[in-house]
Lab assay of single mutants.
Amino acid sequence: TRVETATETAWISLVTALHLVLGLSAVLGLLLLRWQFPAHYRRLRHALW
């Protein structure tokens, strides 16, 4: 049971790290898009909202 718990903890930390990385890359990508294509971003936002 001790090994299982350790594996579970490792998986949880791995998944958390993955989610953090994905979230950060998504935010960075959005910022980059907004910085590179302001007109396109505004049009996209206008279409979405």
Rank of each mutant, 00 (worst) to 15 (best):
H40G: 13
R43K: 10
L31W: 13
L24Q: 05
H40C: 11
P38D: 15
V15C: 06
A26V: 10
A6E: 05
H46V: 00
I12L: 10
V3E: 00
L48N: 08
R2M: 14
S13G: 14
A10L: 00
S13R: 09
A39F: 09
A26R: 05
H19S: 03
S13F: 15
L18K: 03
R45N: 00
L22T: 13
A26F: 14
V15P: 03
A6L: 07
A6Y: 01
R45H: 03
A6H: 07
L24N: 01
G29P: 07
R2K: 12
A17E: 01
S13N: 08
L32M: 11
Q36W: 15
Q36G: 15
Y41S: 08
W35Q: 15
A39R: 14
E4D: 10
T16W: 08
L22C: 14
E4C: 09
W49R: 02
V21I: 10
T1E: 11
L31Q: 08
L31D: 03
A47M: 07
T16I: 12
R34Q: 05
E8C: 05
L48S: 09
L33F: 08
L48M: 11
A6R: 11
R43Y: 07
T16A: 11
V27T: 11
T5C: 00
V3I: 13
F37Y: 15
A10S: 10
L30Y: 07
W35E: 15
L18N: 02
T16Q: 00
L33D: 01
W49K: 12
L14G: 01
Y41G: 07
L18A: 02
L20N: 00
E4R: 13
R45P: 04
R43T: 12
L33K: 07
V27C: 12
S25N: 14
L24D: 02
T9R: 12
A47H: 10
H46P: 03
L14V: 10
L20A: 11
E8G: 05
W35G: 15
L20G: 08
T5K: 00
L20D: 03
L28D: 03
Q36K: 11
L22R: 01
V21D: 02
V27I: 13
V21F: 13
L28M: 14
L22N: 00
V3G: 01
F37E: 03
A39Q: 15
L14I: 08
T5P: 01
W11S: 02
L20W: 02
T5E: 00
P38L: 09
V21A: 15
P38I: 13
A47E: 01
T7F: 09
V3A: 04
I12Q: 08
L48H: 08
P38H: 10
A26T: 11
A39D: 15
V21H: 00
S25M: 02
A47V: 11
A17S: 06
L20C: 11
L30H: 07
L28T: 04
Q36F: 08
G29M: 14
H46E: 10
Y41P: 07
S25D: 06
T5I: 02
A39L: 12
R2W: 11
T9I: 13
T5L: 01
S13P: 04
L30D: 02
A39P: 10
A26Y: 03
A39W: 11
T9K: 11
S25C: 15
R42D: 09
L31R: 06
W11Q: 03
L31S: 11
A17C: 10
E4M: 15
Y41E: 09
T9Y: 08
S25G: 06
L33H: 09
A47D: 09
L44F: 13
Q36M: 15
L32S: 10
W35V: 15
A10Y: 04
S25P: 01
V21S: 14
L28W: 07
L28F: 08
G29L: 14
A39T: 13
T16P: 04
L44E: 00
G29C: 14
L32A: 13
L30P: 07
L44Q: 00
L30E: 01
R45D: 01
L24E: 05
W49M: 11
L18Y: 03
V21L: 14
T7Y: 13
R2F: 13
L24P: 08
Q36S: 15
T5S: 00
L22E: 01
H46R: 08
